[in-house]
């Protein structure tokens, strides 16, 4: 029997991605195209969806070409079912339905957040980690127990990715904001006092965003501000992580999601892991951001447990919390 091959389609937000992964976890291809709004503006859902519509055929064909596979050789079609922006999700879902129908291959819905965690686990070899998922859509500290990923801490307002993006947007930096803020932060020297909000294992970033923007308008040096913003924002999630680690007593710590690419954040969490004698894992930069690969891998995990969906029922769920997803492949 040959290994199952899965095509994963990702379109929750700014990235349209297609990736092919085999049952043994080998990544055959990873093709993406990212919608980038003009400087000073955020993601416009309709514009992003239009972008996805335009690039989709090319991205998918590219995924097959890179993998050196023909569409008929695929066994499973997985699509990002949510959570995310409705118009964007529907582009990926529509294409997945069409491919599934045309190729007569089973269709598997995937939760985008869980897919981030699972690809990070595959990539790093983490078995049962406390996972910090930080991206534009998520800021959550989760661990698996009895059939579900349980949320131990999360943001009570905007996400860490939101914070960096919205700050970058307001001060005229290009999106995604994370890498830009990180670049400028490396040049910052003076620490500026900014509000630090940790509530139990939860964080809240909107107050920090407002305060940082106020400082910017007051003429504070942008590099110092980026430096301080990172220091405070990351220390908050680091503390919440440390609290969750002490509470759950897990032996592994896994950093995943788009913001995982940030070196300063990695350093902070690694330091916590060392302090608590816990093994630290961080997803590779190539797999931290949104991709079809994560959807494909999760598609395989789900399919092997018998999960699939009829095309007629394959609606998208723009609100689909990761703690609402049954995880049969981990039990």
């Amino acid at each position: 029997m040959k290994d199952l091959l899965c095509l994963g389609i990702e379109s929750t937000a700014h990235t349209f991605g297609a990736g092919i992964v085999s049952e043994d976890g080998k990544i055959y291809s990873d093709s993406r195209d990212v919608y980038i709004p003009v400087i000073g503006r955020g993601i416009h859902p309709t514009e992003a969806a239009q972008h996805h519509n335009i690039v989709a055929p090319r991205v998918i064909l590219d995924a097959f070409r890179k993998a050196d596979l023909k569409p008929g050789m695929i066994d499973i079609i997985a699509y990002s079912c949510g959570p995310g922006l409705g118009p964007c999700l529907r582009v990926g879902a529509t294409i997945a339905r069409a491919l599934s129908t045309y190729l007569c291959k089973p269709l598997v819905p995937v939760n985008h957040a869980i897919a981030h965690i699972e690809i990070a686990s595959l990539n790093t070899g983490a078995k049962d980690p406390l996972t910090v998922l930080v991206s534009g859509g998520h800021t959550a500290i989760v661990a698996y127990a009895a059939g579900r990923w349980r949320i131990y801490g999360e943001t009570e307002d905007i996400t860490l990715g939101n914070l960096l993006d919205m700050f970058a947007r307001e001060v005229g930096l290009p999106l995604p904001g994370g890498p830009e803020v990180e670049r400028l932060a490396e040049m910052g020297k003076i620490f500026i006092d900014l509000p630090y909000t940790v509530k139990g294992n939860d964080v809240a970033y909107s107050g920090l965003l407002s305060a940082a923007l106020r400082k910017y308008r007051d003429g504070v040096d942008l590099t110092d501000l980026c430096f301080s913003l990172q220091e405070v924002a990351f220390a908050m999630i680091a503390e919440a992580t440390e609290r969750s680690l002490a509470h759950t007593e897990k032996k592994e710590l896994l950093l995943s999601g788009g913001v995982a690419a940030n070196k300063r954040l990695q350093g902070m969490l690694e330091s916590i892991a060392r302090e608590h004698n816990v093994k630290f894992y961080c997803v590779d930069k190539s797999l931290s951001g949104d991709s079809g690969v994560q959807i494909a891998w999760n598609g395989i995990l789900a399919y092997r447990c018998g999960l699939r969906i009829d095309v007629e029922k394959s609606l998208v769920k723009s609100r689909w919390r990761l703690d609402q997803v049954d995880i049969p492949w981990r039990s």
Binding site: I151, Y152, K199, G200, N201
Partner: peptide
Amino acid sequence: LSFHSHSDEDKGVDLHLLKRALDSTHYK
């Protein structure tokens, strides 16, 4: 992390955190 507050919001968050601690650790 304790503090003084009369606001319903802060009391609500306090209970919300407790609920979430139960949901995640004592899910059964």
